[in-house]
Design a protein around this nucleic acid. Sequence first.
DNA 1: CCTACCGATCGGTAGG
DNA 2: CCTACCGATCGGTAGG
Lengths: 197, 197
Amino acid sequence: MARIKTDKNISRKEVIVSKAATLFREKGFKAASMRDLAEAVGVEAASLYNHIKSKTELLHELCFSVANRFLHKMDEVEAENISNIAKIEKLLRFHINEMIYHYEEVYVSDREWKHLADPYLSNFQNQRRIYRKRFAAVIEAGIRTKEVKKIDAPTAVLIMLHAISGIESWHRSTQKISAAELEENMVTILVGGLTNP
Amino acid sequence: MARIKTDKNISRKEVIVSKAATLFREKGFKAASMRDLAEAVGVEAASLYNHIKSKTELLHELCFSVANRFLHKMDEVEAENISNIAKIEKLLRFHINEMIYHYEEVYVSDREWKHLADPYLSNFQNQRRIYRKRFAAVIEAGIRTKEVKKIDAPTAVLIMLHAISGIESWHRSTQKISAAELEENMVTILVGGLTNP
DNA sequence: CCTACCGATCGGTAGG
DNA sequence: CCTACCGATCGGTAGG
């Protein structure tokens, strides 16, 4: 009995967080109201507060769950015994797939984090900065081994990460090409832009 | 006398639009209040309405002035008698420079257009779709002449345009590399990603 | 989970 | 350009 109740609470909260992701993506964090969210969930606005503490709590749950997935993947890839180009490609494919299959959350984490309040805000910005430095370090290692062109590594990271966020437009469109084709095209262009001919 | 008064009104409005761009970029359109804007301009909130009609008017002035600049440049480049790769490079360099030197406006036009109201909203989305199709057409022409790799042209456009929006992070950062270096690095990576080896 | 409601803030107007 | 102010909407709470 108690078990069932617990499960139900958890799944209720998960529904709220998930609907919040969709809403924050569609309207932006500020423009999406708790009344909108309540309607999407199918309850009155006041009832949401039995499951969550505040609107901002929803935002930082979304932002940090996404950030943690990327940092975790980075740990994994750094530890692998493969070429630097192969590492870069693995990271790119992970980003692309995250964007395709966890679109709403990743989009919100990417574009709405500035509305976080300050213990979380600086924490998030920090994690982000660290992630990019680690990514740039992989590129720099690739430049040293001559796998990669002599370019400014932080600029390359910026290009990669933002290029992938363009999948947003693909996701919204009628999707003339498949997810697999999209992934191959992106990897071809981005890895092709880095590698020495 | 009348002349001076007219000039003063024009420049007053320009100050308001410009401060609005900065504010909308910093906080997002919804989170930036007219009271914030009034403070930045140095007047009371109510006084703003002697120069502008509404908050949304500020947004669509920003969005459309940026969109028009890009469409105008596209006209110009299409008409030139140069290779397709050279056209792509010209467009990229224009985008990069717009992002570097008109950062606030371009950023707002890129990220806040979804808060436009509906005659303007669909109009803006239309212009954007047309622009991207024309950009893709240049890439497709380049594929036909074998200047460019066989890739999906709309995907390539997505990557280019979003990659360049990454300059935002460069702009906010301590700027370890110069604008010129940034431009060369971006062109190297992006054009290198498209061209046949 | 709902009804009832609060204080704050919003975009914008009236009138001078 | 300002003072004064309005109706709407916001995130969130009390109490059941």
